[in-house]
């Protein structure tokens, strides 16, 4: 029974990792951009939610809703002013620019908020739990997991049932031909990064509500997210969810054996999957 419990906890954790990864997967899939600052942008989102919450006294869930448009705007500006200039055949410039951005965000947050760890105060819901079949799960992890599935569903709907999604897919497949059809790739990219940061804000809410955060935790979250994206396969959002689950379940079982093995077990699962399937579990697009 304890194994079933561990499995369920791992899947809930996987939901959080899928949220970290969904924005990354979106940007990666559409413009082949590896955003090394994604983890730090999530942490930035958590501080933004905290800031709005402290200033207005609102519940973090409401504060997060207020943060969404701000983060969308940030994504738009970031893509338009910075990232669009370095996108090209060479993967090095975007990689290095986002790497620089990561260091800048981390240290600006450190200057502004110090290295003290913070937490988003979500109230009584934090410690509430409920029975689901034979196991008991926390309400917050369950909401996180549900949000992850909703986000993936929403992104899939956007991708396959809207004009914007068609433009996303067209630009991803062939930017030049997409341009002939009246699509401006740079604008599409700006919207995509905006949406990615909206998803990052949702991830930030659950990150901050679940555990303490400080300015330095971004890169580790980025690594889990990337592992989820790569395990899932490029361009597949459901694959990203599956990838998050693989990492989450591996970490939960690792931690059950020995608390020090939690992270290690996740990484080893990543390496193991890639040794068997170098392009991930459900690859859709060609890289």
């Amino acid at each position: 029974m304890i194994w079933l419990d561990t499995l369920v906890q791992g899947m809930m954790l996987g939901g959080l990792y899928a949220l970290f990864a969904a924005g990354l997967s979106l940007v990666f899939g559409i413009m082949r951009l590896v955003n090394l600052a994604h983890g730090d942008l999530i942490v930035l989102g958590a501080y933004l939610i905290l800031g709005i919450g402290t200033a207005t006294g609102l519940n973090p869930f409401v504060a997060a809703a207020l943060a969404l448009p701000l983060m969308f705007a940030l994504g738009w500006v970031l893509q338009t002013a910075l990232l669009n200039r370095v996108l090209g055949d060479d993967i090095l410039p975007p990689l290095l620019v986002t790497f620089g951005l990561s260091v800048v965000i981390q240290n600006v947050l450190l200057q502004g908020y110090s290295a003290d760890s913070r937490k988003l105060p979500v109230g009584a819901i934090e410690s509430a739990s409920m029975p689901v079949g034979p196991v008991t799960v926390g309400v917050m992890p369950l909401i996180t997991f549900g949000s992850a599935i909703l986000v993936i569903l929403a992104l899939n709907w956007l991708f396959y049932h809207t004009a914007l999604g068609r433009a996303f897919r067209a630009t991803s497949d062939d930017p030049v031909t997409a341009q002939l059809m009246g699509i401006r790739p740079r604008r599409i990219f700006a919207i995509a990064t905006g949406i990615a940061l909206v998803v990052a804000t949702i991830a930030a809410l659950y990150l901050g509500a679940r555990a303490n955060f400080d300015p330095s935790i971004g890169p580790a979250r980025l690594l889990y997210a990337f592992e989820a994206v790569i395990i899932g396969g490029l361009g597949s959002l459901w694959g990203t969810l599956a990838g998050g689950m693989v990492i989450g379940v591996a970490q939960a079982f690792g931690a059950a054996l020995n608390p020090e093995w939690q992270i290690l077990a996740g990484h080893i699962a990543f390496v193991a999957v890639l040794l068997v399937r170098p392009r991930g579990l459900f690859p859709r697009a060609n890289d």
Binding site: F226, E260, I263, L264, H267, L275
Partner: peptide, 28 residues
């Protein structure tokens, strides 16, 4: 052998994960 199966950006993430595995293993 592991990382050369991955290209471009995958390679960067793969080597990073390997380094983290090394860090955690030597911590044991």
């Amino acid at each position: 052998f592991f990382a050369f199966r991955l290209n471009g950006a995958y390679f960067a993430i793969g080597t990073w994960a390997v380094a983290d595995i090394a860090r955690l293993s030597f911590g044991q």
